[in-house]
Simulated assay, not measured.
Amino acid sequence: MEEQDRRRWGQSRRFEFMEWKLFWEGTLNRGDLEDTFGISTPQASLDLRMYREVTGENTVYDSSEKAYVPSPQIAPRFLRVSADRLLLQLRAWLTGALRREDLWFRSMPPVDITPDITRNVDASCLRRILEAMRSRKGLEVQYQSLTNTRWRIIAPHALAFDGFRWHVRAWACDRGEFRDFVISRIDQIGEAREVDYDARDDLEWSTKVTLKLRPHPRLGDAQRHAIERDYAMIDGYREIEARLSMAYYFIRRMNLDLVDLPPERLQLSLENLSEVQNAMQSAKSESKARIGGRQRRSSLPQASD
Score class of each variant (00 low, 15 high):
residue 19 E to G: 02
residue 133 M to Y: 06
residue 184 S to R: 02
residue 74 I to T: 07
residue 216 H to F: 07
residue 166 W to Q: 09
residue 12 S to G: 13
residue 228 E to F: 01
residue 208 K to L: 10
residue 21 K to Y: 06
residue 287 S to H: 04
residue 124 S to V: 11
residue 273 L to M: 09
residue 133 M to A: 05
residue 222 A to G: 05
residue 270 L to I: 01
residue 161 F to I: 03
residue 5 D to V: 13
residue 169 R to I: 02
residue 36 T to G: 05
residue 195 V to H: 04
residue 246 M to F: 03
residue 225 H to E: 15
residue 236 G to T: 04
residue 163 G to K: 04
residue 170 A to D: 06
residue 66 K to W: 09
residue 259 V to Y: 12
residue 21 K to E: 05
residue 10 G to F: 07
residue 1 M to A: 10
residue 251 I to T: 01
residue 124 S to R: 10
residue 282 S to R: 12
residue 296 R to E: 15
residue 73 Q to C: 13
residue 126 L to T: 06
residue 43 Q to W: 07
residue 53 E to R: 15
residue 260 D to K: 13
residue 74 I to E: 00
residue 200 R to E: 15
residue 68 Y to Q: 01
residue 174 D to P: 02
residue 215 P to C: 09
residue 239 E to W: 07
residue 17 F to R: 00
residue 12 S to V: 11
residue 179 R to E: 10
residue 64 S to E: 15
residue 239 E to L: 15
residue 130 L to Q: 12
residue 106 R to F: 01
residue 23 F to Q: 06
residue 188 Q to V: 02
residue 124 S to C: 08
residue 257 D to K: 06
residue 95 T to N: 07
residue 96 G to N: 09
residue 25 E to F: 06
residue 125 C to N: 11
residue 45 S to N: 14
residue 184 S to K: 03
residue 280 M to N: 07
residue 91 R to M: 05
residue 172 A to M: 09
residue 22 L to D: 00
residue 207 T to S: 14
residue 47 D to G: 03
residue 156 P to Q: 04
residue 196 D to P: 00
residue 254 M to I: 03
